[in-house]
Amino acid sequence: MSLTASPSPVADRPSRGRALMDLFRHNPLMMLSAVILLVLVLAALFAPYLGTVDPRKIGVLRRMAPPSAQAWFGGDQLGRDLWTRALYGARVSLMVGSVVAVMSISIGLLIGMVSGYLRAFDAVIMRIMDGLMSIPGILLAIGLVSVSGASFLTVTVAIMIPEIPRVVRLVRSIVLTVREEPYVEAAIAVGTPVPLILWRHILPNCVPPLIVQATYVAASAMLTEALLSFLGAGTPPEIPSWGNMMAEGRIVFPIAPWIVLIPGCTLAVAILAVNVLGDGLRDRLDPKIAKRM
């Protein structure tokens, strides 16, 4: 079959900004998600100025108070303000989500490139990744936290480690496909050194899928952080996180369900927004996978 196409008209590439605007206009759900996330980020950043009090301050009058004009989200069983704690909880959740996403993508990219292109220790690395992936993520995180003690750092690392193998596999599969491309072989033939080949020809192919993957990792990390906190193996109890809030409200759920449901639904909305954003980006950046998913 012949491949020659008629010369395609010279299409001006729209600027990146324009492309992004187009994307949002065509996908209102994605637009909504972006707005929700923006609001959450701003709320987390400016938490102290948004009608909040000290998140640890106990007000007797607020004890298990239902949502009202004074306490918008009500109070918990100790009398702490839930509006305040929800905003401060957003800090933890968004922080864990973004740190884990950035770190696991970076580390996974590095390992995946080494394993996939240089084939250095490829077999060993992949067996270790297989092993790590065989341990259910939450359990691995629980194990890591319980031997190293609960702190923001240990929790973040514990959530990150189970995410890395998935990134490594993704990167490796892309690298293995791209390194067979004739244009990469042409670059080898003209004597381009390996670091430049990775940088110019391989890395750009990894970026779009990794951006998409980063959103999914972030969503999954936020979920895991909440689960760990809820189970008592996460963020230390003195830090207000959504998972901690739910764990504390668990005992009084039949009497004061909002203590659990408010942080729970906030968490669900935040994760939903990240996932919808990820799906939208995938449709745009990674049409090959988008068609399949």
């Binding site: 491949l3 020659t4 491309e181 244009y183 042409a186 381009t192 050194p193 430049l196 110019r200 020809h201």
Partner: peptide, 26 residues
């Protein structure tokens, strides 16, 4: 080498010029 598939033998993300000067600059 000149390869078979003209649609895969040039990096789609780089200009024709960048592809051609890559080798001499090496």
């Amino acid at each position: 080498v000149i390869f078979q598939d003209p649609f895969r033998s040039l990096n789609p993300r780089r200009t024709v010029g960048q592809s051609i000067i890559e080798g001499p600059m090496n």
